[in-house]
Simulated assay, not measured.
Amino acid sequence: MTFIERFQTFVCQGDSIDTEVEGYLITARIVRDDCPDAPDERQNGFWPSLYQDAPGFIGAGNGWRARFDAAQARAEEVMRAWRADEWFYCGIVLSVSLEGVILDAHAVSLWGVEVNYPGSDNSYLTEVASELLPEALDVGRTSVARMCSALIGGETRQ
């Protein structure tokens, strides 16, 4: 069970993909994360380090200087692109509907996902959505069961 439709290589807030499973329509959409923390504040070890006990340690051995310089340049490019709003963090939010009725607009989500990250094709956005799909389907099934139970329970009380 996966999304056949894929997110584009460049996406914007609000972009979405759909799939149908067992008659349920599952929609995965991009919602901008409202946490203002920069990448180096979110990720321990974002900046490369030459110190063995520090997060971001690049490792010892031959070529350590070249590895460090490459890691430093990459981190600086990622920060530059983030400051220029070329990429952002988002939530992948799945909703579930059946026969045109929205059962849950926010059935399941994963937050802090990088969107349009430098050098990325965004393919992992679809992978994340597909990983969340079974849980969203369970939410849909539970919603339908609860509604059916309420209807049947309402009829027996009359």
Score class of each variant (00 low, 15 high):
F3Y: 12
F3W: 10
I4R: 06
I4V: 11
R6M: 02
F7N: 11
T9Q: 10
F10H: 14
V11P: 04
D15N: 14
D18S: 08
T19L: 06
E22L: 12
E22T: 00
I26T: 05
I26C: 05
T27C: 14
A28F: 09
R29G: 04
I30N: 09
D33H: 08
D33N: 12
D33T: 08
D33V: 10
D37W: 02
P39T: 01
E41L: 11
R42W: 06
R42F: 11
Q43M: 04
Q43R: 04
N44C: 00
F46H: 02
F46C: 07
W47L: 08
L50G: 12
Y51A: 13
Q52W: 03
A54H: 01
A54V: 01
G56N: 06
I58D: 05
A60F: 02
N62R: 05
R65F: 05
R67H: 02
R67I: 05
R67A: 01
R67W: 02
A70S: 08
Q72A: 11
A73F: 02
A73M: 06
V78L: 12
V78T: 03
R80M: 02
R80P: 00
W82G: 05
R83V: 04
A84C: 08
E86N: 06
E86I: 00
W87M: 00
G91S: 15
V93N: 10
V93W: 14
S95Q: 07
S97I: 09
S97A: 15
L98S: 11
I102G: 00
D104C: 15
A105T: 04
H106W: 03
H106T: 12
A107E: 08
L110A: 11
G112K: 02
E114P: 10
P118V: 06
G119D: 09
S120W: 01
D121W: 04
S123G: 05
S123N: 04
S123W: 02
Y124R: 06
Y124H: 15
L125M: 05
T126E: 00
L132G: 08
L132Y: 04
P134I: 10
A136P: 09
D138L: 14
V139S: 09
S143N: 13
A145I: 11
R146K: 14
R146E: 12
C148V: 04
A150Q: 08
G153V: 01
G154C: 06
R157T: 12
Q158G: 15
Q158N: 12
